[in-house]
Design a protein around this nucleic acid. Sequence first.
DNA 1: AAGTTACTCAACCAAATGGTTGACAATCCA
DNA 2: TGGATTGTCAACCATTTGGTTGAGTAACTT
Lengths: 119, 119
Amino acid sequence: MSEDRLSRVFAALADPTRRDLVARLSSADATVGELAAPYEVSLQAVSKHLKVLEDAGLVSRESRRAPVRLEAEVFDLMTKWIERYQQQAEERYQRLDALLAEMQEDRPTREPAREEDAS
Amino acid sequence: MSEDRLSRVFAALADPTRRDLVARLSSADATVGELAAPYEVSLQAVSKHLKVLEDAGLVSRESRRAPVRLEAEVFDLMTKWIERYQQQAEERYQRLDALLAEMQEDRPTREPAREEDAS
DNA sequence: AAGTTACTCAACCAAATGGTTGACAATCCA
DNA sequence: TGGATTGTCAACCATTTGGTTGAGTAACTT
């Protein structure tokens, strides 16, 4: 696990069991025992998973036996990161479109693409 | 690394070097060599990172020495997953608000909160 | 205060990860 | 065709991860 926040968040969500915990916590808070019950793995294993989620800031608890709560703000962090790339990808397409349009203007009677340009 | 797609995507993005590769590819395609140049690690290490990104469907290449391209569609997959929780979290707050409002209606002259209710 | 229940810590293990170096394969160019 | 360049594969290593069991701690209940 890398040091920075975003790395911890992504690493935490890279495990299906932990994503399932997040899914269940999104409908209601629950104690460690309640959360562990449905899985085949030991309570200790689930406790470890929750620690990973907690270190990533995805969940929190007031005290040991208190119900675990989902921290929804962290999702905004991820969304912000992701949006940059969705947005930039879109901008790239727009730049490409603009460039192609410009090329069309420069040579209205453009010769057809050669073989190598295919595929 | 877990089997399913989403796990591979999150695991791929859990590494800062790989996120940096994604960041750089979002502004322009680049070959393996170009991508590796700025880092202190070996070319082989970067090649491995790119394989992880490729297995996750985040980047692609037409052939060995062809420039690596970012596959923006995968970000939609993540966004969809994340949005579920942002949305559900919001719904929960709304349900809570509604419940509190209802309680207010039931007892217009509600007694003040006791000590334990604080924090 | 004592006992039970709920959870965490510690030590251990197998598998995965991120890095290395060296050899190999494929592609460009002369 | 031959030689340089570019990238991958293989073997290896240290560290991390996700799991186990056993022991310990903390908190309700009585």
